[in-house]
Design a protein around this nucleic acid. Structure first.
Length: 570
RNA sequence: CGGGAUGUAGCGCAGUUGGUAGCGCACGUGCUUUGGGAGCAUGGGGUCGGGGGUUCAAGUCCCUCCAUCCCGACCA
């Protein structure tokens, strides 16, 4: 392709709307433009990159025995109503009506559509197992689209669904997908962690997320360098990390006027936050919950939800009136001793190991010192309800955990019979018995994967594409197009490389060399062939985007050399 | 949905106490130049986000709506 004819309007200045590298570079390098908040259009180079990633995904899905299909983006309401998700999704779903006032939505995900296909077409165990996938546009009306393509309202997703006769079959399908995902992200040149995630109230188990480590990631991950354990912050278990050293002291009420927060207590009493225990009052589905964690810890609401067995929207922090009612004091003095009414007390498992800590007195302006679990109060449940922090012990091997942020590019999990039960997807087994089909689902965000690749592969000049996803492998830059000899050599190399089937660009624009070099760097084409003054000596340069120095090569050797580099780096 | 900010040429921005709307880049033309974002000359391009109001006069002040971005909440 000739750069003079390609639509690549690169930007010289950083667009005001972008803040993170991948967003800035996708706009600067003219891969895409914004159409509306969270809605992007792709220019020729951007489209080629999407295609490259999709192609890798196709090859690996096919290799794993999955079959490609294409569902509809426009989905009739009845299907979502059957599974109950028409209301669950709420405003996040783009809903619309047809001319006859029938309800539709733009598919935010496709479990129901796939399940519907299977319940209609699969009747016997002889037709199973089956893994189907599609690459298709999804629509989610996110409350806050972010960071360009990282969290957008319209995006391309590869979603796969497995259908098996039993759980052992599901395990096999799940493992196939797991391996396929590893191969996909390896081929994309990504460094990633496979992380245990919480499948929450959605049911299912063995939920794993593929996270690309990046400071701009939206999720925190706890991981262990020693044994390889990695989990989503919400999911990561905390081991008890304390040794009892002190003797119990007699408890004692202390006057703490207007001292409510941990920070104020630390200042007032001059004691470190880990000597306090904070009591958080929540309003659950049908009762009030008091959750206790150490003063320097954060409560993990996901863990709390799982213990209570309720859904996210059923739990909220109690308002002042409820707090005052159950504690008999103003907000800021809640404690576990002497709570009024039916209050479920859930205590973090670290607390029974603490000695002589400080809690609220359930009396305005007072706290209690030297409180001890067991002697002074008891809980309904003792469990891990806190967030991990850097340095906590790995639940598997005990080494200190590290915490980083990650971009979720893939998510796989075992659905079981959630959708097959809801929609009645059954098969008949060998014995003639009707049974529900066991399902799994597996997603990859294609655009987000592209953005994640850029986050991990760029420098101050621009993108540095891995060969596998580069929009073109080679860019030929004649330094001066008005120089007859340079032009001729560049065109010759271009013609040969094209004939060899190599994806090659030639920058035939009548621009100064500096502009062309800067554009080539910005676009991130892995191999640059510079055709300059030395053509008269039969020499051109090969420069790799990832390296500083160029290498001089004989014109007669260029093509062979380039072919070898590509082969080596694919 | 709460908090913060922004909206002026394709892009990045300036515009003072209200008084003829500007700069750089980009774009067109001509000449010179040509190994890391050239120089000179010349030309074109604006509902100043929309609507309403105050005023002799509004990019500027007031009201309102919209859009976009950031932080948070939320996110099968």
């Amino acid at each position: 392709m000739r750069l003079s004819q390609l639509l690549v309007p690169t930007l010289r200045e950083i667009p005001a709307e972008a803040e993170i590298p991948s967003h800035i570079l996708m706009l600067k390098a003219a891969l895409m433009r914004k159409l509306a908040s969270g809605v992007y259009i792709y220019l020729p180079l951007g489209q080629r990159i999407l295609r490259k990633v999709e192609q890798i995904v196709r090859e690996e899905m096919d290799r794993a025995g999955s079959q490609e299909v294409l569902m509809a983006a426009l989905i009739p309401a009845e299907l979502l109503k059957e599974s109950g998700r028409w209301d669950v999704f709420g405003p996040e779903m783009f809903k619309l009506k047809d001319r006859n006032e029938r309800d539709f939505c733009l598919g935010p995900t496709h479990e129901e559509v796939f399940t519907d296909l299977i319940r209609n077409e699969v009747k016997s165990y002889r037709q199973l197992p089956l893994i189907l996938y599609q690459i298709q546009t999804k629509f989610r009306d996110e409350r806050r689209p972010r960071f360009g393509v990282m969290r957008s309202r319209e995006f391309i997703m590869k979603d796969a669904y497995s259908f098996d006769v039993d759980w052992e079959g599901l395990d096999k399908s799940f493992n196939k997908m797991y391996e396929a995902y590893c191969r996909i992200f390896d081929r994309c040149g990504l460094k990633y962690l496979v992380v245990e995630a919480d499948s929450g109230a959605m049911g299912g188990k063995d939920s794993k997320e593929f996270m690309v480590i990046s400071s701009i990631g939206e999720a925190a991950i706890a991981y262990c360098d020693n044994c390889g354990y990695a989990a989503n912050e919400e999911k990561a278990e905390c081991l008890i990390n304390q040794e009892i050293v002190e003797e119990m002291l007699p408890k004692e009420k202390v006057y703490t006027p207007n001292v409510r927060t941990i920070e104020e207590l630390v200042n007032f009493l001059g004691i470190t936050p880990n000597k306090f225990v904070k009591t958080l009052i929540y309003k659950g589905k049908d009762n009030v919950v008091a959750a206790l964690v150490r003063g320097d810890r954060d409560l993990n609401e996901t863990k709390l939800l799982n213990i209570l067995g309720i859904r996210e929207e059923e739990l909220e922090l109690a308002d002042a009136s409820i707090v005052e009612k159950v504690t008999g004091a103003k907000v800021g003095f809640a404690g576990p001793i002497g709570l009024k009414g039916e209050v479920i007390i859930i205590v973090d498992n670290e607390i029974p190991e603490m000695r002589n800590f400080i809690v609220g007195a359930n009396e305005t302006d007072y706290h209690i010192k030297n409180v001890n679990y067991g002697r002074d109060f008891k809980a309904d449940v003792v469990a891990d309800i806190k967030n991990v922090i850097e340095g906590d012990k790995c639940p598997r091997c005990g080494s200190p955990l590290k915490i980083d942020r990650g971009i979720e590019v893939g998510h796989i999990f075992k659905l079981g019979t959630k959708y097959s039960d809801a929609l009645g997807a059954k098969y008949v087994d060998e014995g003639g018995n009707e049974k529900p089909i066991i399902m799994g689902c597996y997603g990859i965000g294609i655009n987000r994967t592209v953005a994640a690749i850029i986050e991990q592969h760029h420098d101050e000049k621009g993108i540095i594409w891995p060969m596998s996803v580069a929009p073109y492998h080679v860019i030929i830059v004649p330094v001066n197009v008005s120089n007859e000899a340079q032009n001729r050599v560049a065109e010759d190399i271009y013609a040969v490389l094209q004939k060899e089937g190599i994806e090659v660009l030639i920058d035939d624009r009548d621009l100064r060399a500096g502009v062309k070099f800067n554009d080539a760097d910005l676009l991130g084409i892995p191999i640059r062939i510079t055709v300059g003054k030395k053509v008269d000596d039969g020499i051109v340069e090969i420069k790799l985007r990832e390296k500083e120095e160029a290498e001089e090569v004989k014109i007669s050797d260029v093509v062979e050399k380039v072919k070898n580099i590509i082969k080596e780096k694919m």
